[in-house]
Design a protein around this nucleic acid. Structure first.
Length: 194
DNA sequence: CAATAGATCATCT
DNA sequence: GATGATCTATTGC
């Protein structure tokens, strides 16, 4: 089962706007798919917490490229995190995907996360969802409008309320309210800001 | 329940 | 050489 990707124009706007708009959308990688329930905006040069704040390097290259591409980076020697590049080429805003609600390919997700019992815990964190969906650095720079990793609109648009909080796990600009999540979702990550 | 330790390495100083 | 957009297991109350 597959969905049809959102167009590039969807991503060509400010990171904060994109972070809100990605909530409720479907993230699909092969047989595995989930509904995006939690995101964070990273703003670029003005945002000391953003990787791109230090300018253009080998790692941050994709952030400065055109919108609608995946930025996947390796963190803490162990995990990988998925971002979607926002804003026009040259402007490095992006959106960190922090949690998804498993929809399809749940058996595949369980296989990739052996020890996990509850469906709620399969992808409720940035490092967990990449494991559950099989997303690795091989997908860094991949075009999210073309696959194999794609983002698309849900078949039925269900209304939801968006909650806002500070971003999680950062030390710089730790009070900026750039984390967005679906208010009543059981699938958002639980860790507290620091 | 909350707090913390340990795993482990690419990136940048 | 230190740090980091994390997660899990374990310890302690």
């Amino acid at each position: 089962m597959s969905c049809s990707p959102l167009p590039r124009s969807f991503y060509n706007r400010h990171a904060i706007e994109l972070a809100r708009s990605l909530l409720g959308k479907i993230l699909e990688h092969g047989p595995a798919a989930g509904r995006i329930v939690e995101t964070e905006a990273y703003l670029g040069l003005s945002d000391a917490a953003a990787h791109a704040s230090r300018g253009r390097t080998a790692r941050t290259e994709v952030l400065f490229g055109p919108p609608g591409h995946a930025y996947v980076y390796f963190i803490y020697g162990m995990y990988e995190c998925l971002n979607i590049v926002a804003e026009p080429e040259g402007s490095p805003g992006c959106v960190l995907i922090r949690a998804v609600e498993p929809l399809r390919g749940i058996e595949e997700m369980r296989r990739r996360r052996r020890a996990i019992q509850r469906v709620e815990d399969l992808a409720n964190g940035p490092g967990k969802l990449t494991l559950a969906l099989g997303i690795t650095r091989r997908l860094n720079g991949a075009d999210v409008t073309r696959g194999p990793l794609i983002v698309c609109a849900p078949e039925r648009d269900e209304p939801f309320e968006i909650a806002v909080s500070p971003r999680i796990g950062i030390t710089k600009n730790a009070d900026w309210p750039l984390r967005f999540y679906i208010a009543k979702s059981r699938f958002v990550s639980m860790r507290k800001p620091r």
